[in-house]
């Protein structure tokens, strides 16, 4: 088991190094650099001044040199300054990460809490009216663009009914109820869309498990239907579902770009988007790498969880 973990961590580190090259190169290729912006802001600047500034900031160096210099600083903990916010990158990044986690984790938990029972019950009575309604809901969830759902919710609950705020995040010192009110609509948007996909995973996993011999045995020895479903089948059906959910871990950290933009929720999705669009080189690179690293970490945790759920995999020590 420990060898498995060490191997996976080494692999994740390698992926991180490769991704840092890719991300750095892509962002380095973005048109325009900070000096261009300075030139357009200052009419007195000559091209000699610009060249001097490029030299000072190392922007005249080839990309790989800049990458190595950046990597050297980053390893020592110096991630640079954000140009847009005028603060060290980490001071901008960490609050955004926290905000995204609040939004996404709440939505994730709610989606799981609703979707898994829904999928299980639908599989317990296949082709029933309940099954069909869950299925139709699931398809709507997959097909509905998130921005459309978000706008509908804003129209209904903020504009027409006036119950909930249309966007933004409550101040840190606001009451808990106020925080919840701001959280409600973005969470509802993200959760609604995921419930569709998750309930389908759960349903098909359950249907698969219910075909097995040990389920027939359980029924034959007289176990109640409720016991068969929730004790014998449920735990086994969870195994593939956990894997699929784990692949979704990434969205917990990278945030929901569109949802965050519409509700002006100051999270990672919006931050990365603003950084890329605003030519904030340092912030964009580090934020993207952070999201990638946390996704890899999430996948690793999920692999370990998988082992806990299924002893056969623990013994096998690999995929």
């Amino acid at each position: 088991m420990s060898r498995f973990i060490v191997g996976r961590i080494a692999q994740a580190l390698l992926v991180m190094v490769v991704m840092s090259v890719v991300i750095y190169a892509l962002i380095g290729l973005m048109p325009g650099d900070p000096i261009d912006l300075m030139i357009s802001a200052d009419p007195n600047m000559t091209s000699a001044d610009a060249a001097l500034l490029r030299e000072i900031y190392g922007l005249d160096q080839p990309l790989y040199r800049r990458y190595l210099a950046w990597l050297g600083n980053a390893v020592q903990g110096d991630l640079g300054y954000s140009r847009l916010f005028g603060q060290p990158v980490l001071q901008v990044l960490l609050p955004a990460l926290g905000n995204t986690l609040i939004l996404m984790a709440t939505a994730f938990i709610i989606a799981i809490a609703i979707a898994l029972p829904l999928g299980t019950l639908a599989a317990a009575k296949p082709r029933s009216a309940f099954d069909y309604s869950v299925n139709m809901y699931a398809f709507a969830g997959i097909s509905l663009p998130s921005f459309w759902l978000a706008l509908l919710l804003i129209m209904l609950f903020s504009v027409n009914l006036g119950w909930l705020p249309a966007g933004g995040m409550a101040a840190a010192d606001a009451s808990f109820g106020e925080q919840l009110r701001h959280l409600a609509l973005p969470v509802a948007t993200v959760a609604t869309l995921h419930i569709g996909a998750y309930s389908r995973y759960m349903r098909s996993a359950m249907l698969e498990v219910l075909r097995h011999d040990y389920i027939r045995t359980a029924r034959a020895k007289g176990a109640s239907e409720r016991r068969v479903i929730w004790v014998h089948a449920w735990r086994n059906a969870l195994i593939p579902v956990v894997t699929v959910l784990a692949l979704d871990f990434g969205f917990l950290f990278s945030g929901a770009l569109v949802t965050e933009t519409i509700f002006s929720w100051p999270g990672m999705g919006k931050l990365i988007f603003d950084a890329v669009m605003g030519n904030d080189f340092n912030l964009a690179v580090v934020a993207l790498l952070f999201a990638t690293a946390l996704t890899l970490l999430g996948n690793l945790i999920a692999d370990l969880l998988y082992g806990l759920l299924d002893p056969r995999i623990r013994a096998g020590g690999g995929r």
């Binding site: 490769v18 991704m19 962002i27 973005m30 990434g250 890329v276 993207l288 999201a291 890899l296 996948n299």
Partner: peptide, 22 residues
């Protein structure tokens, strides 16, 4: 397949945004 895994880990909407900007 490791390359595929690595790309999976990247927040993919961001990736497209980046490609479009670059």
């Amino acid at each position: 397949m490791r390359v595929v895994d690595a790309l999976y880990a990247l927040p993919f909407v961001m990736f497209v945004v980046l490609l479009m900007v670059v």
